[in-house]
């Protein structure tokens, strides 16, 4: 075990997995409780389209992933609030539109690029110094926003209309929350991949939801499950020589099924 920690790429992978596990598990609680699961799936496709464009025009792929995912969540948010279109319908449109763009950009590339497929399926062991910098900066921004506006996010998650009535800027905060979801997806893109990224956001929070009736405790449990499964996935993938993204997702999914079985909400345990 200590030998594996002596490798620089492994140190980077572990630090990245802690940050990703932390950010995803916190954002996941809002996503689960506000029924925003589908918007995350759509945004990860948009981020992947940004990555493919980056490789096509030789620009930083993660910068374009940020741009594409932010445009997607803002337009989807706007359409669902002002355009009289249901959220899942507007996400559905962007889900296929951005995937079509990604396929188009890949088709326009003259040569096969293995790195693009790395973003599709994820590889935390290949996280570079510059990737780490982006993960650290974006992770810091998302966590700071959650810390600063935690009680307001808490309120709009439970009762947006009541929050608005009592003077909370609910519309503005909802867009900020969508922005944080987009940034979280970009942070996780390289390590888990566009296809699997959303599992890391949804599954720890969904597992935590099974275990408690308190929103504050749900955050705590989600963080423990998120970081634990993210770090555990790295170790398992190294020891078993398996793809890291898939291993992490399978690991966290196993925790989710255990939490369903032992959920106090189903009477197997007393209320926590």
């Amino acid at each position: 075990m200590f030998e594996m920690l002596s490798y620089e790429f492994m140190q980077r992978a572990l630090i990245a997995s802690v940050i990703i596990g932390l950010v995803c598990s916190i954002i996941g609680v809002f996503v689960i409780l506000r029924n925003l699961t589908f918007i995350g799936a759509g945004t990860s496709h948009a981020a992947f389209a940004g990555v493919t464009l980056g490789y096509l025009i030789n620009q930083n792929p993660l910068s374009l992933a940020v741009l594409f995912s932010l445009i997607t969540v803002w337009v989807v948010g706007f359409l669902s609030r002002r355009g009289h279109l249901k959220l899942d319908a507007s996400v559905g449109i962007f889900y296929s539109l951005t995937m079509a763009l990604a396929v188009l950009f890949i088709g326009l590339m003259k040569v096969y690029n293995a790195e693009v497929y790395g973003y599709l399926f994820g590889s935390i062991l290949s996280v570079t110094q510059s990737d780490m910098l982006i993960i650290l900066v974006l992770g810091f921004i998302v966590l700071s926003l959650v810390y600063l506006f935690f009680k307001e996010f808490h309120f709009i998650t439970f009762d947006e209309e009541m929050a608005k009535a009592s003077g909370i800027a609910a519309d503005w905060l909802s867009f900020l929350m969508l922005t944080m979801i987009a940034l979280t997806i970009v942070i996780s893109l390289k390590s888990v991949g566009a296809i699997l990224v959303f599992a890391l956001i949804v599954t720890p929070a969904a597992a935590a939801y099974q275990l408690t009736y308190s929103m504050i405790r749900m955050f705590s449990y989600s963080i423990v499950i998120g970081i634990g499964s993210s770090v555990g996935g790295v170790f398992l993938s190294y020891w078993l020589d398996l793809p890291s993204g898939a291993t992490t997702v399978l690991f966290v999914s196993a925790i989710f099924f255990l939490s369903v079985i032992f959920s106090p909400k189903r009477g197997r345990l007393t209320s926590i």
Binding site: K151, E152, H154, F158, M162, T212, Y213, S214, M215, I216
Partner: peptide
């Protein structure tokens, strides 16, 4: 099953008075 306690629910009524940050 929504994870919110009575304490958390009532405290939300204070958020506007407490103010941002």
């Amino acid at each position: 099953n929504f994870p919110v306690t009575v304490r958390e629910t009532v405290m939300m009524g204070r958020y506007s008075s407490i103010g941002l940050l």
